[in-house]
Design a protein around this nucleic acid. Structure first.
Lengths: 240, 240
DNA sequence: ATTCCTGTGTCCGATAGCGTACGGATTCCA
DNA sequence: TGGAATCCGTACGCTATCGGACACAGGAAT
């Protein structure tokens, strides 16, 4: 797929839209205390309500934000890739994690200690305003997603999820099992199987043993609901 | 029901938890430009994405935040009463409304012009920090609610909704039709009818023609899922 | 008093998703 | 090279909810 920001090196911090929008002095101050880390597939980054010890700015990886309910993480409510940031709001307020975070697509991210980030943001109004804007965008994304989860069909939601992940993966093939997708969507694997089977039969996707390939992006978009577009639009004003 | 804050007069602005937590100088500055308004039952306050012209701090009324999807407001994702604020985040960022807002329980609120509020908050870090905290609390509330909507039974969700409204209403009887509740929960009226019928038969509630009465609060709590408690806890740190 | 409107109770067939379970295929690893 | 683990396809009966519809009752309006 074409991705304009891939003109930037894969480990250029400015790939991340939050970092790219910082003014030079704030950017320099933040990067002076940050490091680039590599995050492994399905790594649990944070339990729900656990203390947030670091803030992450994804470069090539993607986070999932899940909610733990009835004692297990059962439903994904947002995905965050290079357009966003993880843990910034909680770090600023010294709060526990809003949800259960895990790595959906492995890759790199900029990491900064939560306390260091809090100190930086406290004296830099532009930086804290940006955190605020990202929080608002996340909230909007969650609103749309929640409504979609409640009101749309399994096939539409499967397609939407794959499209969102496709965008963030930057490649047509990425890791995904039915079991996993079922957890994300809050349904059983058998239910996911039916939906993905339809998308496969329609020729929009291929998959074998935990690897899925998007073969017909426009087709997949036609199978998805409008929520996909709506959720993308949320981050448009935050694009550098 | 007992409500400690009813020791305050019904139109005392400090009934609202946001206003109650402002430092005196910020409070005075805000109130100098605000007015107390009375909001009618089921009044549409804002369409989704519409410009936010005012910020409201509920005193005795309750707002519902709905999401408009497939061209009609179909699902409630949060309720906001005297513990919160409506439109503050959007006003600060000059953004459109996150959702469709309507008055679920009629009553009074403090109203301030959005532009005036933005100016105040811009120079008062404690006030803008409070907006930030409330936004985070709202987000947490929405996370739990979204998971509940997806994963729990109709009866549990009905009970949860009634409990939340009961708390904010301050009285055991409040207006509610099945049709309306169905819209809030994103299901058909017939489905709601079954669930409320169970709660009625169990003796937890009574209702006739748009008026519902909670007759056994502990019973209703036992019929609800834990999400009710979880959602309440979110606002605990923001209680004055 | 009659009519109309709104709110409630209910019923039907249809369907999506549940819970569970089993078998087959591929990959990993000892 | 053989076993274990993982992943996918599918099948069964079951339940919740859908979509649509109709009847009835209380209140309001005329």
């Amino acid at each position: 797929m074409t991705d304009r920001s891939s003109a930037l090196g894969l480990s250029d911090p400015k790939r991340n839209h939050f970092l790219a929008r910082l003014v030079p002095s704030d950017y320099a101050a933040l990067m002076a205390e940050a490091e680039i880390v590599s995050l492994k597939f399905r790594k649990k980054m944070l339990e729900q309500d656990a203390p947030v010890d670091a803030v992450y700015f994804p470069l090539t990886c993607m986070f999932s934000l899940l909610v733990t309910i009835d004692d297990q993480p059962q439903l994904e409510l947002a995905t965050i890739g290079k357009e966003g940031v993880i843990g910034a709001a909680e770090a600023m307020q010294k709060q526990g994690s809003m949800g259960y975070n895990l790595i959906q697509i492995p890759g790199s991210a900029v990491r900064i200690d939560a306390k260091a980030f809090r100190k930086l943001a406290a004296t830099r109004p532009l930086m804290s305003a940006l955190v605020f804007q990202h929080l608002l965008a996340l909230l909007r994304q969650i609103l749309y997603g929640a409504a979609c989860n409640r009101l749309h069909s399994m096939e539409e939601r499967c397609a939407r999820w794959m499209l969102m992940t496709h965008d963030r993966a930057g490649e047509d093939t990425f890791p995904l099992t039915q079991e996993f997708l079922a957890n994300m969507l809050g349904v059983r694997r058998a239910t996911v199987n039916v939906a993905t089977g339809m998308l496969k039969k329609a020729g929009f996707i291929r998959y074998v043993r935990g690897k899925i390939t998007v073969t017909d992006r426009p087709g997949l978009e036609s199978a998805s609901c409008d929520c996909f577009q709506a959720m993308n639009r949320v981050y448009a004003p935050l694009t550098p």
